[in-house]
């Protein structure tokens, strides 16, 4: 069961809650395989996509998920919204809330923005990625993809490779994977894998081949070129020489390894084309599972009768400081 009002992150969710979300997602996969890919479950509900950062995949995925549940969707992006005119996030949220939406999906460059929103509006908030903090639906779709291919998550060794420092995907996955009983290795240059991640339960490895040894799952992260102006490594070329996932590097992992990437990929930088299109790659499954996971999240949070909403508040007073990390970036 999932009794929470919002989906703000995977940190603090129990294994039972995560399993419930994954089971529900699995049932939703079938809806997308039908000829008529639409069920009437959320008819008459309004879902707002509030995106303060560019996103194609996540926004489209949420929009398709909402539409397949028959909800009405409205997309607001920072470039077209009143944020351009100087309105604060809180004021925007209050104004949106006054229009009575049934859920708001928010992506924001600042860690904790969805938590702030959750304290000012009375509808469920889904975190669509906040700063370098969390991206819960991405981690859930990764967990679902891993579980479908491996049967279970417990006992697996998962290597997450690349720019861990700036990655909300890595943080959400770390919380989810640890809760589900997997071993997690963070692999990357020391400048991008700060030591305090060890406190969250990750093993830190700087050598790619060593980090991939006997891994059941390799999760590649995008190198965000816009952030890499010689501060974390001397050149993109050097990075890809040391950390690009090549066929040879994949050979260090287990024979039945699967490779995930949250997209968008930089072919030739963090992942070679041969590997990205190769037999171990489950990247397209991730995209398909993304719609199912988002349908499940909307169904669980919005598809409840009015007045039966969970009373318990699960919004922390302030975003937890450990992830102050890179908001200033």
């Amino acid at each position: 069961m999932f009794e929470r009002r919002h989906l703000l992150g995977l940190e603090g969710l129990s294994a039972e809650e995560i399993t419930f979300l994954l089971d529900t997602s699995e049932s939703f996969r079938e809806v997308s395989e039908r000829e008529i890919k639409k069920v009437p479950t959320l008819r008459g509900r309004t879902i707002v996509n509030l995106f303060y950062e560019n996103s194609t995949r996540t926004r489209t995925s949420f929009e398709i998920a909402a539409k397949r549940l028959s909800a009405d969707t409205i997309n607001l992006s920072a470039s077209s919204s009143s944020a351009q005119k100087g309105e604060t996030l809180t004021d925007t949220a209050r104004n949106l809330a006054a229009m009575r939406p049934d859920a708001i999906i928010v992506r924001h460059p600042s860690s904790g923005a969805p938590h702030l929103l959750a304290r000012h509006v009375d509808c469920p908030i889904i975190n669509g990625g906040d700063g370098a903090h969390e991206h819960p639906t991405q981690a859930l779709l990764d967990l679902l993809t891993i579980r479908s291919h491996k049967g279970q998550i417990e006992g697996l060794t998962v290597a997450i490779v690349g720019d861990l420092l700036h990655s909300r995907v890595a943080r959400s996955n770390l919380f989810g994977l640890r809760t589900m009983g997997a071993r997690v290795r963070f692999v990357g240059p020391p400048t991008l894998v700060p030591p305090h991640f060890a406190e969250l339960g990750a093993e830190l490895v700087s050598d790619l081949h060593e980090g991939l040894r006997d891994a059941d799952v390799i999760m590649m992260l995008r190198i965000q070129r816009e952030r890499m102006n010689g501060r974390y490594f001397s050149s993109l070329d050097e990075y890809s020489r040391l950390y690009c996932l090549s066929v040879e590097a994949v050979g260090k992992a287990r024979k039945d390894v699967i490779i995930l990437h949250p997209g968008p990929m930089n072919r030739g930088v963090e992942i070679s084309s041969t590997v990205a299109d190769g037999p171990y790659s489950v990247i397209m499954d991730q995209v398909t599972n993304g719609v199912a996971v988002r349908m499940a999240a909307l169904y669980v949070l919005v598809g409840r009768r009015r007045g039966t909403e969970a009373a318990g508040e699960d919004v922390p007073a302030e975003p937890v400081p450990l992830r102050r990390a890179v908001a200033a970036e």
């Binding site: 069961m1 529900t24 699995e26 049932s27 939703f28 479950t41 409840r304 009768r305 039966t308």
Partner: peptide, 23 residues
């Protein structure tokens, strides 16, 4: 068939919160 998604009274009761597969 699981018809949970087509109900006119979706609630969060324990009985039908879990959607079973339609095959």
């Amino acid at each position: 068939m699981d018809i949970t998604l087509y109900r006119d009274d979706i609630t969060r009761g324990a009985d039908h919160a879990v959607i079973k597969s339609t095959e």
